[in-house]
Design a protein around this nucleic acid. Structure first.
Lengths: 270, 270
DNA sequence: CGATTGGTTGATTCTACTCAAGCCCGGTGG
DNA sequence: CCACCGGGCTTGAGTAGAATCAACCAATCG
């Protein structure tokens, strides 16, 4: 920020030019599975606007009145839930393609908050028109449902992690999950380096630990040559050991990696 | 069991006679919001069969091939997720009206297991015909989505509980949640006594604690005259203190209690 | 420049776990 | 009949993993 034009503004220009093409290209996103048919056209029509956020700003806060549904186009978000006394739990991290702002009908206000971890851009889809679209295009409805269920699976895995794993395992599992989701791949080279825009405080809020303990466990993982987290980048030093410690569910890999076939298609088409 | 006819069989006779009326009457269930229209008729048509389970038996196990979708008519179920090494996390408890067996498409096998805590009866709805029904009756589709989202909210609340609350708070929150969901009310008389078919081991698996520690915390809550759990029944000794310790989210109450208005209507009509 | 955010480390405390034992109860079998 | 067993629950003693308290460093920001 500062230098006249914020990063979010720059990104906005790029995103507007590409006119949601990025989102459409995401095999894991809402538009991804729709093809170029009528449904996709109408979904583009329904898009009310784009929103551009700088890192650290909120999409909405816990307790805000219900918002529109948004589709994350670029950047990472966090969703969290606060207790009365200020304790905060991170529910999940969101990456491009994610649906943002949905929750069960009948709740007057948002039960969680969503904040941008990086600069981010989102499609705004008025909740009403999205419901109408689901009604008219069952394939869109099924896709939407699938994405909600996939998020739900993620939350369940996280719940199992907090309930059953110790601190080191939880941290390893979280970082590997994010590595897999952000790359769409489950296998990594030794020494591979990825963007991972987290702070230790966020990892603590996601794993139910104190930031101090997260720091110690990260040191242990570094000293054991498993991984390194530095300046918002993750280096995977020993993929096998990391996978063994994290012990992720098969489901996570199946739901968040791009199918081999579509990778081949992309290569073929490109 | 043993004496010729199992409890499940007895229940089966009752359930068949009532022909799913129980489920239809549940304001919180799948059929509940459909009224008597065409969609409800077709849903009844789609019902392939009923399943009757004795307490302690499985609806399906983790790793089983994908099953049909089921609608819980009577009894309580638990859903759990196991880690490789045998550690088990209880994801949620299910009560009449709940949808059972759904998970994101694309997964070949069940990522969790479901077991009967009491004798239970379920409607079997073939997954394919339910998808078809959602397609033809958007109101059913919306209802289905709402139920998935409501479950998801429950999982998120539980995640926050495990991440942020201490042992005593987690146990209080779980028991109060179940009391609210099983009665459809958020307010209790001092000394009120409810069915609560849990073991201390199950509470431990749900809260991420050891059974031994659960036992100690239950003793503390009993000694503090907050609640008593005995022979599968919960006595709420001090509703205010329990609510203060549990500190449940507003959302839970709004999603799982019958709306006041309808209760008022009932009183007015009665 | 001071203030703030993110990260690091040590010393100490305490929550919750582990290990170990024993109780009550219903069922089962000699 | 009693012995035995297993499930569910209870309690005590010792331990460990994570929290708390308290500094401190480095980089960035205003």
């Amino acid at each position: 920020m500062a230098e006249g034009v914020s990063m979010a503004e720059v990104e906005s220009i790029l995103a507007l030019k590409s006119n949601c093409a990025y989102c459409a290209a995401r095999p894991l996103g809402l538009c991804g599975a729709l093809g170029d048919g009528e449904a996709f056209g109408e979904l583009r029509e329904a898009r009310r606007a784009m929103r551009f956020l700088d890192a650290g700003t909120h999409v909405y806060r816990q307790g805000d009145p219900r918002t529109d549904i948004l589709n994350l186009v670029s950047g990472w978000l966090v969703q969290y839930q606060d207790l009365e006394d200020g304790r905060r739990q991170v529910l999940r991290f969101l990456m491009p393609g994610a649906i943002v702002g949905h929750q069960a009908a009948g709740l007057p206000s948002m039960t969680h908050g969503t904040e941008a971890l990086t600069n981010a851009s989102l499609c705004v889809l008025p909740a009403g028109s999205l419901t109408e679209l689901r009604r008219r295009h069952p394939s869109l409805g099924e896709r939407y449902l699938w994405m909600i269920e996939r998020d739900s699976q993620l939350t369940a895995d996280q719940l199992t992690s907090l309930g059953q794993r110790d601190a080191r395992e939880r941290i390893a599992a979280l970082l590997l999950e994010l590595a897999i989701r952000s790359t769409g791949r489950a296998h990594f080279e030794a020494g591979e380096n990825l963007a991972m825009p987290l702070t230790q405080v966020l990892i603590a809020e996601a794993t139910g630990l104190t930031p101090i303990h997260v720091n110690r466990m990260l040191r242990k993982l570094r000293e054991a040559n498993v991984l390194e987290l530095h300046e918002r980048r993750l280096t995977i030093l020993d993929p096998e050991r990391l996978a063994a410690i994290a012990d992720l569910s098969e489901a996570l890999i199946m739901l968040w990696t791009r199918p081999e076939s579509s990778q081949a298609e992309l290569r073929g088409a490109g």
